[in-house]
Amino acid sequence: GTVKVQGITIKVPNPDKAYKIAKKLAKKYNLTVTRKGNTIKVE
């Protein structure tokens, strides 16, 4: 899958794990995490 952070896309082998990490970071930096299948977008 991929993770998008402010325009940066990161390929990740485990979208579930990445999503959990993204959620933690999002809370810390007051961002929104959206997930569509293997693509995770943080904005």
Rank of each mutant, 00 (worst) to 15 (best):
G1L: 12
G1D: 05
T2E: 11
T2Y: 14
T2R: 05
T2D: 05
K4A: 10
K4Y: 14
V5T: 04
V5H: 14
V5S: 03
V5N: 05
Q6H: 14
Q6L: 15
I8W: 08
I8Q: 04
I8P: 00
I8K: 04
I8F: 11
I8Y: 07
I8G: 03
T9W: 11
T9G: 03
T9M: 10
K11D: 07
V12W: 05
V12A: 03
V12E: 01
P13W: 14
P13F: 09
P13K: 12
P13V: 09
N14V: 07
P15I: 15
D16E: 10
D16M: 08
D16L: 09
K17Y: 14
K17S: 08
K17E: 11
A18M: 08
A18I: 09
A18V: 11
Y19N: 01
Y19R: 03
K20I: 12
K20R: 08
K20H: 12
I21D: 01
I21V: 08
I21Q: 02
I21C: 11
K23W: 06
K23V: 13
K23A: 04
K23L: 15
K23I: 13
K24Y: 14
K24R: 12
K24S: 10
K24N: 07
L25C: 14
L25I: 08
A26T: 00
A26H: 06
K27Y: 12
K28I: 14
K28P: 01
K28L: 14
Y29R: 01
Y29W: 09
Y29K: 03
N30Q: 06
N30A: 10
L31R: 01
T32I: 13
V33T: 02
V33L: 04
T34C: 14
T34S: 07
R35V: 08
R35H: 04
R35L: 10
K36I: 13
G37M: 01
G37F: 04
N38L: 02
N38M: 05
T39D: 10
T39Y: 11
I40A: 00
I40L: 09
I40T: 02
K41C: 15
V42M: 04
V42I: 14
V42H: 04
V42A: 05
V42P: 00
E43V: 11
E43P: 05
